[in-house]
Design a protein around this nucleic acid. Sequence first.
DNA 1: CTGTTAGCGCGTTCAG
DNA 2: CTGAACGCGCTAACAG
Lengths: 337, 337
Amino acid sequence: MKSVNLKELAQELNLSISTVSKALRDNYEIGQETKERVKKLAQELNYEPNPYASSLRRKKSKTIGVIIPEVSNNFFSQVINGIEEVARENDYHVLIYLTNESYSREQTISHHLASGRVDGILMSIASETQDYAHLKELTSKNIPIVFFDRVCDELATAKVTTNDFQSGYMATQHLIEAGCQCIAHLLISSNLSIGQKRMQGYVKALEDYGITCDASLIVNGDKTDAENRETMKQLLRSRPEIDGIFASVERLAMSSYEACKELNLAIPENIKIISFSNLYVASLLDPALTTITQPAYAIGKEAAKILFNSLDKNKPISATQSLELSSELIKRKSTAV
Amino acid sequence: MKSVNLKELAQELNLSISTVSKALRDNYEIGQETKERVKKLAQELNYEPNPYASSLRRKKSKTIGVIIPEVSNNFFSQVINGIEEVARENDYHVLIYLTNESYSREQTISHHLASGRVDGILMSIASETQDYAHLKELTSKNIPIVFFDRVCDELATAKVTTNDFQSGYMATQHLIEAGCQCIAHLLISSNLSIGQKRMQGYVKALEDYGITCDASLIVNGDKTDAENRETMKQLLRSRPEIDGIFASVERLAMSSYEACKELNLAIPENIKIISFSNLYVASLLDPALTTITQPAYAIGKEAAKILFNSLDKNKPISATQSLELSSELIKRKSTAV
DNA sequence: CTGTTAGCGCGTTCAG
DNA sequence: CTGAACGCGCTAACAG
């Protein structure tokens, strides 16, 4: 079956193409009855405008790009959920791209999107990324970007984040008040804004509670799960005084959890774990993992709203529209602490 | 900064637009040195062809649509991962749409995609869907579809599934051999192919082991999590002889798990749970949940490969290309059974 | 109120 | 080997 276009509708109705076009778009120039006649036939023939022709003409794609490191992570999944919801409400389409934490993929993708394929971009930076030229290319082409979670401070645009510093502080405080004296911190790649801020919160909390901060307790968890688990095991073996772990992200929490189990370190008696995580199931673990849970769905929605608002009004996004949402401390259910 | 197009390149080089176009596409009609000259400048000016103009002209969008019920589910996340990977290898773009299990959303989305926005579709059907007219519209417009996991048997196209019947059988058998006599089955919406097949496997296993199949032990879990949990609690209270639960999907497994915990039914002593789930963490639960784990990533990849192969060779997809991949029974780690 | 005309940027004839 | 001309399907400016 051939896909029907304006020309065919026009022929069928003995009208001109532009009249049909206007009628369908409810242009005030067109009479009520012609509008109805046109719409009726369009309906019958299942007419759908060709989006590419329309985009070419209007220089608007009604499409946004979402660039994230991975999707097999509850946080990003929920964010996508929020984004898709808002996009649908605004009649936008969502293109998705995964960097897998790779800088070069992020570059390639960004470059592709500089072609006008998308009207705007929502993005969370790859852990490998340290240079931002590819992002500057985008802004130089006037493609608005809103960052979420993992942001790029060098670009003056809106960022939607969690209160990472306070959350890191809160997490550490939680462990200290539960009696921990020697707390390890499992950091996600040191390039990332979130990692830095969470760590700063950790450092500040130790300071405030008069605990000296030992740099060797802060380890990088930017390897594979298996490697991170080994790193953790090694640390725990060499430093038996460790009685608390603060993991920066979900995956690191799980690696820590497994490391403890394998070393037969009783949780939470010998060692207490807290982590950023949007994994609902973490609260079912026994003993349940205390988590700092980010408002992922809301982050997706808010980031998308800022972007669509800018696209809608056709005005640039300013850094002042940035938003910081609060995370939530979800305590262990079945076990004290 | 204005985005550079063929015309500008042509002017700069004192060539015609079509020559530049051909040079960039490595057309044999163009001399080697002009090609290089053109490509060099294109590189310098960061030229990226306008995808919409190109799509309009070639009637190919280099884009596929992925329609799934939800993304906050590890199975679908992993599938997306596989799809995106293959798409990237083939230089395709991925549009994502979530139905949230809603029939009307699925209709709207399908209708939108009938416009030529995508060259093909990968899809897993919403649980509400019972009528397939919207999908037939797509095939009537020659838009190839490959179904995965939740398929539509009324359409003669390729489907990538898990061996659901055998898996359901295996799951039930596992419980029986672990000593369960009275096994409840928590069914996902009865419309879905996967639900039916898994249930059939369950019924067959009971039969083979000479256990009479009591229809009241099969309950529908198509409500919200909280409601499903209540349903489960009610069932468990009214039928204390239940000593095994086979849940059809991840969410239902969690609801069952919680229901048991709340009723203080010891797992696995009083009651054993098995479930389809791609939630890695399920194996960390204590007692760990035995799961039937689907090869989600591979399903995504294979489905995408079938689609791209068809798009590439420009020939229709036949049902004979369907694939059935095997799931894996992941047994409890920490606890026997 | 309706129709005519002129592109959007690119790829594909067909002439030279 | 290169260029001129046309049209993909749609929208917008301008006539009537």
